[in-house]
Design a protein around this nucleic acid. Sequence first.
DNA 1: TTGAGGTAACTTACTCGAAGGTCATATCCC
DNA 2: GGGATATGACCTTCGAGTAAGTTACCTCAA
Lengths: 214, 214
Amino acid sequence: MSRANAGTKGVPRADRELQIVRAACEVFGTIGFAKASVAGIAADAGISKPLVYQYFGSKEGLFSACLTYGAELLAGDMERVAADDSVGLERGLRTLDGIFSILEPQPWLWRLFFDGTAPDTGDVAAVRAVYTDRITRLAMEGVGELMALVGDDDPLDVSAMTAVWMNVVDSLVTWWLDHPEVTRSEMTARCYRLIVALSGAEPPAAVVADPAGR
Amino acid sequence: MSRANAGTKGVPRADRELQIVRAACEVFGTIGFAKASVAGIAADAGISKPLVYQYFGSKEGLFSACLTYGAELLAGDMERVAADDSVGLERGLRTLDGIFSILEPQPWLWRLFFDGTAPDTGDVAAVRAVYTDRITRLAMEGVGELMALVGDDDPLDVSAMTAVWMNVVDSLVTWWLDHPEVTRSEMTARCYRLIVALSGAEPPAAVVADPAGR
DNA sequence: TTGAGGTAACTTACTCGAAGGTCATATCCC
DNA sequence: GGGATATGACCTTCGAGTAAGTTACCTCAA
C-alpha cells in the first residue's frame, strides 16, 4: 500500500524548514499566534502536521523560528541605517523607509513582533527579549539624539518618547496595511510630510526625491 | 441535598451583570479575548459559568458588553473635552488627561478596545464600529484642526496622522502601565513636555500647573 | 396567616468539537 | 541495513456551550 507522497526524500531539511517558516510567518502575522493552528500552517506549507513537530518541536518552537526570521531582517536593516551618519528626524525617516522596503513583500512580519497572543515565557520570550533589546537600543539612541537637540535629556522622558516613536512606526505601518493602494515611496513621502507638519522644522530631504509623493 | 449557594436569590440581575462585566473587563483587557476563558471569568466574579451564559448568551456577547462599558466611558469623556473650546495641541493634552483619569483605576479598559484577538464579526464588530466611528471622528476633527494650522489638508495625510495620534495615545498609556510609580499628574506633565519637544511650539499651559511634573 | 404556584437566581455535571501533540509506519537513497 | 524524509490515524486536553435540577423570594387566594 502506498501513502501519498510518503518517503519522497524530496526536500532537504533546511529548505523545508525555510518553506514552513515562511508559511507560518504569514499565518501568525495575519491572524495571531492564538488563532493560528499548526494543522492549518502545515496545510498552507503543503506538508503534514507531524513534519512541523519533527522539525520545530512545538507550536511555540515554530513561532520562535518565525520571530527570529522576521526580527533578524528588521533589526539588521535598522542597524544598517544606524551605521550611517544621519541623525534626528532624517535618521527616523531613513529607518521608516528601510522598514517599508522589508515589509513591502511580506507586511505581516511586523505584527509577528507585536503579537499579544504569543506566549511571554520560555523560548519565545527569550528570542523576543534579544531583539527587543537590539531594536530598543537603536531607537533610544536615535530618540536621545533628537531630544538632546531640543534640550530635554530626562531619562524617563527619553524612555517614554522612545515608546511613542516605536508605536508611531507601528501605527504608520498598520495604516499602510489598511491602504494597500499606497506605494512604498508614497508612504515614505507621507511620513516626511507628517514629520514636517509635526515638528515645524524641515529635516534634510535626501531620503525622498519628491515630498509630494508622486 | 443542598447545593452550595444554589438558589440564593442574592443579587438582582442588573447588579450581577455589572459585577460580571467588571470582572470580565479586567480579564479580557489583561490577557486578551482569545486567552481568556469564560470559566475563569466566572470564577473571578465569584459565580458559575452558566450564569454568564444565561445573562450574556456567549463569550462574544460578554465581550460586547465589556466593550460597550469601557468605550462608553472613554468616548463620553472625549466628547466632553471636544465640547470645550480648546484646539490643537491643548485639546490633545486635555484629551490625554481625561483618558488618564478614567484609566487610572482600571487601566485594562484601554486594551479591550485594541484587542486583536477579539472576533471581528457579528455583534462585537458592530459595537466596535459604533465606538470607532465616534472616537475616530473626534480624533480626526482635532488632528484636522491641528494640520490645517500648519497648512496640510491632504485627507489621506489627516487620516494617517489620526492613526498616528491614536497610537501615540496608546503607547503613552502602555508606557504608563509599565511605570506604575508614575502618577497621573506626572504623566500629564510628561506628555506636555514631549509634545513641546516634538513640536517646538509651546501650547497654552492651562492643563498642567507645573510642566516639570513635581 | 398561610401555603401553593410562579419565576428569578444559581449550581453541578455533562456533551462536543477543535487543536496540540504522538505513534507506528512507509518510501527513498546510500 | 540504516538514516532521512514524510504521512494517516490516533490520543489527549481544554474550553465553549447545555441540560436539568435546586433554592429563595413574591404574589395572591382561601
